[in-house]
Design a binder for these strands. Sequence first.
DNA 1: TGATAATATTAGAGTTTTCTAATATTATCA
DNA 2: TGATAATATTAGAAAACTCTAATATTATCA
Lengths: 108, 108
Amino acid sequence: MLLFTLIQEVLVLMNCNIDCTAEVLKAIAHPTRLRILCTLNLQELQVQTLVEKTGTTQSNISQHLALMKERKILVTRRDANRIYYRIRDPQLVELIQLMRDIYCPRAA
Amino acid sequence: MLLFTLIQEVLVLMNCNIDCTAEVLKAIAHPTRLRILCTLNLQELQVQTLVEKTGTTQSNISQHLALMKERKILVTRRDANRIYYRIRDPQLVELIQLMRDIYCPRAA
DNA sequence: TGATAATATTAGAGTTTTCTAATATTATCA
DNA sequence: TGATAATATTAGAAAACTCTAATATTATCA
């Protein structure tokens, strides 16, 4: 009975882990957000730069940035009235690159 | 002018690449689909097994499997009236594990 | 202080996704 | 062949997501 409870516990934890991962994946699984991430790469950029480089509206970019910040994908730094965004964990960049290599190889 | 066209071309290709990657990410960014992938891991399993291990309905699992097959995440093999599913590229397993480690570490 | 620049927020319409329930298909086996 | 097992498909309601347009906030600078 104790063992059963323990197993339940572990399963619950594993499921949390999976649900959480799905959340993170969902946060990056959008063309505009992926474009933001690939533009950022390892540098930090202010919102205006991202707006220019991705070709969407300021409002739209801001909403996508907020979403990714909320989910701890991005972190920010304020400098005067500019906000700089960067990817929190640099490993994410490699991870995305790997995914692109596997499933979406560039045309040769 | 030629250079400009070339750059345009490259940008279009890069964007295709990003859109395509977003599609793939979307295909795995769902709790049930991620649970299927983690259950499969490196083995191949028949639908019924996945239904039992994930605790959803047969119809639901079947729809999620179809979606991932369509997007080349999964491949199938038929044996009599059973269909076996497996992950097409084993690197995906590592990739998901890495994402879990970074963003959703297990409670210690 | 008022104007401006940079960014964030809100509302809501349109679209997409997801699930359930019912049914169809395909293959086996008695 | 008819019953059964395994899987797939379909329709449609409910929920979630995404964009645009308008507006708010925050900080600078003349």
